[in-house]
């Protein structure tokens, strides 16, 4: 297909190539891959639902082992089973969604695609591109993770405490209440307030780091495989395929674990901790 005419070119683009559209809505190959991933997850979930029995079969055993392992891993991060159980559905969903998207993109189906006319020249666009090799997907996930963690914080420690993490009015108010204990609060309180503002910037940084880390890794993997195939087709990419399978797993794990960490941090009240530490120190 690629060599059919000299005007058709294919290159690994930073963006997901559109392969069709419904009205004004462009369907990209990354979006298609995500739909396939969602479809697979739905099918597997329903299979699990059907096969759940008191005495587990093979499929159920595998999923029970995964589930138990995931719970234990999350417990190590959150430190409490209660928090784990609240956050777990979201975290495991991120894991599987990212994992399926990563792995479907690795499948050597690069030959299947459509030729898209873009102005002067024609572009070959494969149907399958890792869903996570599109910044739109990773931004969506990162925004959900960060906004979700803050909502979780509001539910866990209250809206006022969450607000004070970023715009630390409590610290400023503390100037008037703690000034009697010593003048150091005059120095500490503005710093604490400023740190709060930094945290606000940090939330934006979290979105950027989460989305670009995942996008960068998966996209780099695709480019790497394409380059290796260009150097020595069929043989050279094989070890890199294994590498990409591993990277796909690791990136899914990293994204979900970081989300879990953000949720855990959001559910803990820092000011409260500090004041209780101070009380211990004073006591």
């Amino acid at each position: 297909m690629e060599t059919a005419t000299s005007t058709i070119t294919h290159e690994s683009t930073l963006f997901a190539e559109p392969i069709g559209h419904i009205g004004a809505f462009h369907i990209t190959n990354a979006l298609l891959t995500s739909w396939i991933a969602v479809g697979l997850i739905v099918i597997i979930s329903i299979l699990v639902r059907i096969s759940v029995k008191r005495i587990p079969g093979k499929l159920q055993s595998i999923f029970e082992i995964i589930l138990e392992g995931a719970y234990d891993l999350c417990d190590q991060v959150t430190g409490s089973r209660r928090t784990t159980e609240k956050v777990f559905p979201l975290v495991i969903s991120i894991f599987f969604f990212v994992l399926f998207n990563n792995w479907i993109g690795i499948l050597p189906l690069g030959g299947l695609g459509v030729v898209v006319n873009e102005g002067t020249h024609s572009m070959f666009a494969p149907f399958v591109r890792s869903g996570t090799a599109d910044i739109n997907t990773t931004i969506a996930l990162a925004v959900i993770a960060v906004i979700g963690s803050n909502l979780f914080g509001i539910v866990s420690i209250g809206a006022w405490n969450t607000f004070n993490k970023y715009v630390n009015l409590k610290a400023l108010g503390g100037i008037f209440t703690k000034i009697r204990k010593g003048p150091s609060v005059l120095l500490v309180a503005p710093i604490t307030f400023f740190v709060g503002l930094l945290e606000l910037v940090g939330e934006g940084a979290k979105i950027a780091s989460l989305s670009f880390r995942l996008f960068g890794n998966v996209f780099a993997g695709e480019v790497l495989l394409a380059s290796m195939a260009a150097i020595f087709a069929y043989v050279l990419p094989v070890p890199f395929l294994f590498l990409e399978i591993f990277v796909g797993l690791i990136q899914a794990l990293i994204f979900s674990m970081l989300t879990l960490v953000y949720f855990t941090i959001a559910s803990q009240d820092h000011n409260h901790d500090e004041s209780s530490h101070a009380q211990v120190a004073h006591g």
């Binding site: 969602v38 979930s45 969506a140």
Partner: peptide
């Protein structure tokens, strides 16, 4: 639009995975 579509995809995954796999398991 694609960000929204992917968010919806993810929402479907959360719902289905929780409702059909994790909860019963």
């Amino acid at each position: 639009q694609i960000i929204l579509a992917q968010a919806i995809n993810f929402a479907v995954v959360v719902f289905v995975l929780y409702r059909f796999a994790i909860k019963p398991l």
